[in-house]
Design a protein around this nucleic acid. Structure first.
Lengths: 226, 226
DNA sequence: TGCGTTTTGACAGTTTTTTGACATTGATTT
DNA sequence: AAATCAATGTCAAAAAACTGTCAAAACGCA
């Protein structure tokens, strides 16, 4: 079972780690931004979310996750706030369970197990931009009736481009989202972009990958006069 | 939203009714037998279950429901018992949430709403995909009159594939669901898929296990022209 | 022990991913 | 305007990863 714990208090973190570690693979995030990033990038069975976080508020994180994530893991909120209003806000933001501090670790464990049992919700998964459609579930780009399968990396890159569109996304960001801390040490990304472009143009789409020199890439619909 | 409330205390019942009635269609059961009967016969969005019941204990009811119901509604347990052991027993019996008396009606409402959001689990006794039928109870796949028994692992894998169909399910996920944290350290899964394929093709089914390279396997019905 | 189940390990074939060498581009400096 | 430099495009080929195949070994149980 994979669990993401977004909690800045190191003591609580350590407790949770000790208690859950035998049964779970745990990832930790120490602030909201990092937490959201991990949550979106990976497929967890449960997300444990403290509401008091540096960098990004837990409620906001939860909302953002619910609206952006493709595969929705259940979220268990953890907080010292225990008024009904707080709970209402938490559940309204998309929580699935709510535990107030101090709590027993065993109860946390029990509730995590219960949450993990329920099936995950899939968000409507297909993306589009201009005349193009991309379905990350099966890595297929299509324009009307014609379509092409992408391989894994190409799919990831196109997904990032589509999610970012019409803004540019930096090569560094793409690289980090795909490879994490250790990207290949040569211009692999360049090659993938090159291949993606070939595939897109073979589809005769009006979308193309623009490069914004030294800033990144952008997926854009060509205007008629080009 | 349809909610079944299994609760013998008339006062609590009335309170719940008053509070939830505007948003929910409520059914009430006053004892365990009646509760189980209603639960199995109807399709509720949530079941609120008091644990102290005449005629049939709530825990037993919950277990019975989980093993017998085809469409599994989430169960919220309601009880005065608040020790961790009680909660453990409750969740182990199949509860999805657990609220101890006395509780605020608003909190009950909030949690009911949260539970209702999640999709219900299907407990279909037999699965099918295209022309194939698989009965997980006795591990037999069949197509019309011809059928083949599967061994344990093959059955588990076919079940996962059928549940996921028509989507792909990753090798990692299958592996985790079958072996947990410690999968065999060699390509056992590959071998099982290989054998499953042989069995399927011996049945002359139009379903086949497609592989989605680097993303997993998918059970798919061949189209006519293939 | 014997038998069915499950895992292992080796190999081959395929696809994906990375590498590296070189060309091109655009901005900046001289 | 020419020279320069970093960023990017292009492409083929090497490397790595993934998958299918199958026989044999290990396991678990009656």
């Amino acid at each position: 079972m994979r669990v993401l714990v977004i909690e800045d208090n190191l003591g609580i973190q350590a407790n949770i780690a000790d208690f859950l570690e035998p049964d779970c693979v745990l990832d930790f995030a120490y602030n909201g931004d990092h937490g959201l990033e991990l949550a979106l990038a990976n497929d967890y069975d449960v997300i444990v979310l403290d509401l008091m976080l540096p960098r990004r508020d837990g409620i906001g994180l939860c909302r953002a996750y619910r609206s952006e994530a493709n595969l929705q893991a259940p979220i268990l909120m953890l907080t010292a706030r225990d008024t009904l209003e707080d709970k209402e806000v938490g559940f309204a933001a998309g929580a699935d369970d709510y535990l107030t501090k101090p709590f027993a670790l065993r109860e946390l464990k029990i509730r995590i197990d219960a949450l993990a049992k329920r099936p995950k919700i899939k968000n409507a998964s297909s993306l589009n931009c201009g005349d193009l459609t991309f379905d990350p579930a099966d890595n297929i780009v299509s324009l009307g009736s014609s379509s092409k399968p992408l391989n894994n990396k190409e799919g990831l890159i196109l997904r990032l481009l589509m999610e970012a569109a019409p803004n540019a996304i930096s090569g560094e960001t793409i690289s980090y989202r795909i490879w994490g801390e250790e990207p290949p040490n040569s211009g692999a990304l360049r090659t993938h972009i090159y291949n993606l472009r070939k595939i897109l143009s073979s589809l005769k789409t009006r979308c193309e990958i623009e490069t914004d020199r030294s800033r990144g890439y952008r997926l854009k619909e060509r205007s008629f006069d080009e």
